[in-house]
Design a protein around this nucleic acid. Structure first.
Lengths: 231, 231
DNA sequence: CCAAAAGTGTTGGGACTACACCCATGA
DNA sequence: TCATGGGTGTAGTCCCAACACTTTTGG
């Protein structure tokens, strides 16, 4: 079956830049797929696919992310729409790019469900990319870094109960920057968005750390006042 | 002539939220067009149109803006892509929204070039809008306000030579907020992005104000350091 | 000399930075 | 008792907000 329109239409795809956080070795990584076909056969690319008509583009991105990574309910947001007519040599393909952030340790090697193979790359050592994907990725890195300063996405990557050191590690990894431990703790505590659970770690070979959880209600309050996290 | 594709494709449009600044009465306004056809006949809408294949979506937005408003080289940037399948009752239409900012006094009544009539509305008194345009407009207002804090778009709305009071008026109008005159001046001067031209106003019935111009080189320096304007 | 807008300096408080040491735990 | 990471307080600096009066100009 085919589809006929009065005027020509560009094709529409969704591409999702999936960032994975490896808190263990302080690296921010990206999931890329190797292209099995021309054009750019053998080059690495940001995973993506066509938007099914009748499907919202947000849903297309969520579907894509789940197929690729098997995750739901992670940070996922629209980045930008790239619409140069020559970004794909075959025809005019407009792509709506999304950014996602997942905990890499939960999604280790997880090959793509289609024919292509998928692999994590540290953002500091990227391979050659297909299409205009280098440009998309550059914008995605800027976005994820600025986003983490304003929204509590760092918390999404941690277990419900976490220590302040774990939280600090997430920030340091995404922002590729170290913070002073004392100042970081003071800042987080003064924001009033984390709750001391009155519990501690167990089975650690050193002083057990206190456990905290995100106080979502307080967070939403802060958010309303345009609150950034000041990190 | 018609166009046939193997898989169905959503239609793709560009809608541009055109903000006009009226420095005289401190209002931020939006240019809307009245719809001549169904659906939403008689309702007001954000001006827009289809993306011609082979045309970049940025170019489509620039073309749209020039047709609608007769302006070039003003602030214009992509806002967000809206892709719910039911946002248009006829079929799945994905729209890439843009935001523009022009000086309303240069573009007074300027009716749209197509059949519909165009009118400026203060953002505080908007009519009923077609489609999901209320949602688009809300996001556009947030964007223009946050943008003006980070980028020197205020300067685009002023003549090459301007006074500090004029500059302050632009900020106050877009942000719908008043600033302390002394602090505003100190801030702007300390940023080092404006040059004192050593000239003054003429033909004013009060003390003549000094004239300044934007120092674009210094501005780009500041921009590199992620510099926001702190207003 | 009056009206109208231009122009300017100081002070207090809050937030950030930088910095070094003691504490609890299990091996 | 040692190794490991957890946990804390203070002082200096900078930036911001708040605030009122004098100056220049043309009418």
């Amino acid at each position: 079956m085919s589809h006929t329109y009065k005027y020509p239409r560009p094709a529409l795809t969704v591409d999702t830049v999936i960032f994975g956080l490896d808190v263990k070795d302080y690296t921010l990584q990206v999931l890329l797929v190797e292209r099995a076909q021309q054009p750019f056969k053998g080059k690495w690319a940001i995973p993506g696919g066509f938007v099914d008509p009748g499907e919202s583009v947000d849903d297309a991105a969520r579907r894509e992310l789940e197929e690729e990574c098997g995750v739901k309910n992670v940070f996922l947001e629209q980045l930008y729409t790239f619409g140069d007519p020559d970004r794909d040599p075959r025809e005019h393909v407009v792509t709506i790019a999304y950014v996602a952030l997942v905990n890499i340790n939960d999604h280790k090697v997880k090959a793509g469900s289609d024919a292509s193979k998928a692999e994590w790359f540290p953002v500091s050592r990227l391979p050659k990319l297909a299409f205009d994907h280098r440009k998309i990725l550059k914008m995605a890195i800027e976005r994820i870094q600025s986003k983490v300063r304003y929204r509590p996405i760092a918390f999404e990557l941690l277990p419900k109960k976490f220590t302040l050191t774990q939280l600090q590690n997430v920030y340091e990894t995404v922002l590729e920057k170290r913070f002073d431990k004392r100042n970081f703790r003071k800042k987080m505590q003064s924001l009033g968005i984390i709750k001391d659970l009155g519990q501690t770690q167990t089975k650690v070979t050193h002083r057990a750390a206190k456990l905290y959880s995100l106080d979502r209600k307080a967070y939403r309050e802060l958010e309303k006042q345009g609150g950034n996290l000041g990190v």
